[in-house]
């Protein structure tokens, strides 16, 4: 981190017209392509290409929860596992979980536990496996989006499709869906998972509207972050890192 410090000042992340390095406006997403039902063995699956990210998600369940002592007699457990393939990043990642992936798995599980009608399947688990095949900043958000589609594809009853998007500050401005350079050299980043028309934990009563990851949701995410920046109520922040 220390050796990138001098570089930071050299890279101009926004031009005079508030266009970003890849030509996007501040509230513009990278191209997204979602395909459901891509795996045979899984009960549900999805592949998401989001900018340079490629993420697969598979859902197994509801199935008997193992080990048995984990079973909840009143509801299903939603267990997510986020994993990065060793070749998904520029420097090979050692296989297996690290602290980062364990944390992402935990918050992802929590995000989905809130929307799945878990009480319909007591004593079971709904297992969600997210595999990052190619990473380009925003993998957990692409993973959550893939997982939502895989859950729907598996026929899991839930309130809504959870979508997620990262936002951050570059050159002092709030921007959506940071790419790798912006993630590395920007001022701050955070991620939120939304469903319906509200961030997960902002305490407002649910107020419903269909959202598409491409426009409305993120437009609103953008406002939420501006509100955040202006000292309003914080949005549902899954993770916040400030460099």
């Amino acid at each position: 981190m220390v050796d990138v410090e001098p570089v930071e000042k050299e890279i101009q992340l926004l031009d005079a017209n508030e266009r970003r390095l890849d030509g996007r406006a501040l509230d513009e997403l990278r191209p997204i392509k979602i395909e459901a039902g891509v795996l045979r063995r899984a009960d549900g699956s999805a592949h998401v290409e989001w900018g340079g990210n490629r993420v697969l998600a598979a859902v197994y369940g509801p199935r008997e929860a193992h080990p048995r002592h984990l079973q909840d007699p009143a509801r299903a457990l939603v267990q997510c596992r986020y994993n990065m393939a060793p070749f998904s990043v520029s420097d090979r990642k050692r296989p297996g979980p690290d602290r980062r992936s364990v944390e992402i798995s935990k918050v992802t599980s929590e995000a989905f536990s809130a929307v799945v009608f878990t009480e319909q399947f007591p004593r079971t688990s709904v297992d969600v496996f997210i595999e990052v095949l190619q990473a380009d900043a925003g993998t957990r958000c692409a993973g959550i989006t893939a997982a939502a589609v895989a859950l729907a594809d598996a026929g899991i009853p839930m309130r809504d499709l959870v979508t997620a998007c990262a936002s951050g500050k570059i050159a002092g401005k709030v921007a959506l869906d940071l790419n790798k350079e912006e993630d590395n050299f920007g001022d701050a980043d955070d991620r939120a998972a939304d469903w319906g028309d509200r961030p997960l934990a902002d305490g407002r009563p649910p107020h419903r509207r269909r959202v598409r990851p491409s426009d409305e949701a993120l437009d609103r995410r953008h406002q939420a972050d501006l509100r955040d920046a202006e000292g309003g109520a914080p949005p549902a922040v899954l993770h916040r890192g400030v460099r």
Partner: peptide
């Protein structure tokens, strides 16, 4: 190296 990740089969475990 090989990872038989649980995404690929109900019989694979993390």
């Amino acid at each position: 190296s090989c990872e038989l990740v649980p995404l690929a089969s109900p019989t694979f475990e993390s």
